[in-house]
Design a protein around this nucleic acid. Sequence first.
DNA 1: CCAAGACGGAACTGATCGGTACCATCAGGA
DNA 2: TCCTGATGGTACCGATCAGTTCCGTCTTGG
Lengths: 192, 192
Amino acid sequence: MATNAKERLLSAAERLFYEEGIRAVGIERILSESGVGRASFYRHFPSKDDVVVEVLRRRDGMWRAWLDGRITASERSPEELPLALFDGLAERFAAAEFRGCAFINTMVETADPDSPAHHVAAEHKEKVIAVLDRLLTEGGYRDHEALARQLALLGDGAIVTAVREGTPEAAVRARGVAEVLLRTAAREPART
Amino acid sequence: MATNAKERLLSAAERLFYEEGIRAVGIERILSESGVGRASFYRHFPSKDDVVVEVLRRRDGMWRAWLDGRITASERSPEELPLALFDGLAERFAAAEFRGCAFINTMVETADPDSPAHHVAAEHKEKVIAVLDRLLTEGGYRDHEALARQLALLGDGAIVTAVREGTPEAAVRARGVAEVLLRTAAREPART
DNA sequence: CCAAGACGGAACTGATCGGTACCATCAGGA
DNA sequence: TCCTGATGGTACCGATCAGTTCCGTCTTGG
């Protein structure tokens, strides 16, 4: 039976890619930090690019599961529930290893917008927007899709700002903007 | 007399770094596209890293000069003048070669926040925020600094969103948020 | 008990990386 | 005229890149 070589490779690659960047991390580093042999690497993955894509897919699943958790654990009212995104971001920004959004970073580092990695990263963001759209719809907001895209834009702005500043403060600022946005937005007539 | 070898190097490097990323562009590419000899390169710059820093400094100056131009050319009223940033971004996003903000890209690609390049990039953003702060102060906004930082966060969010979507639409969405923000913000009592 | 398969280690390929050294050329000022 | 200094071209350096190949070992299911 196979041991968990593939799993070790993926988790080491995920950590290294996030901390130092994709191009900056060579195969050698992934091998030495995961303890996997060179040949085993290429038994599981045709090339480094395939590792990148699979790491992003994993991270997409993890990240959205985490977001769902933060949403269900939030004690905010339905019309304020979308703000749970910014509550969550505030936590993430405070983590020592925080270095922005792996998907934004990938799109920046992988210049070619047609590359598989760029594609997976872009899809992740659309899925997050879909989650926000659902929350806003349930919250009774009329123009929920446009609002969802504005909130996502705010979240991404907060992320790159936090990378630059090195403090979690950007999450608070973005949440402030989001609160104004939600208060101003029109909601469906109450159904009572 | 020296010809313009240094200038050719810098403009070629700036274009290549922006289009393909810093790590993705080797010295060889810069040499061949600028027509400069290898030795001449190292007569002007101690290392590639120094080119990166000087390119960023140049671009910082150019970019802020361009922003100033867009501001003075704007026909918006003083209280709406900060929106000129988003008008300008809308133009940039529509350009075929648009690939985000060179400074954000640099900070993402250069993981080390202590590196000179990261530093120059971070300083650029602070200078832009200072410009916004001045506009907001002149527009009579009370909490101008916090507002300036929120608008800058919106701008950066629009930029990374535009990279992902490949359309200029994000500028319009961000401007919409900015309008709500400015309308909601408290202004000094009118001095008439 | 033994064969199949997953594994780690290491040697090797060709290409490219950033950086150095040397050389011939060409312009301009004394 | 001659000399100085900036230039472009090229050969070269050691290091590292992604990827291939082979070999010995260990585990596990039949």
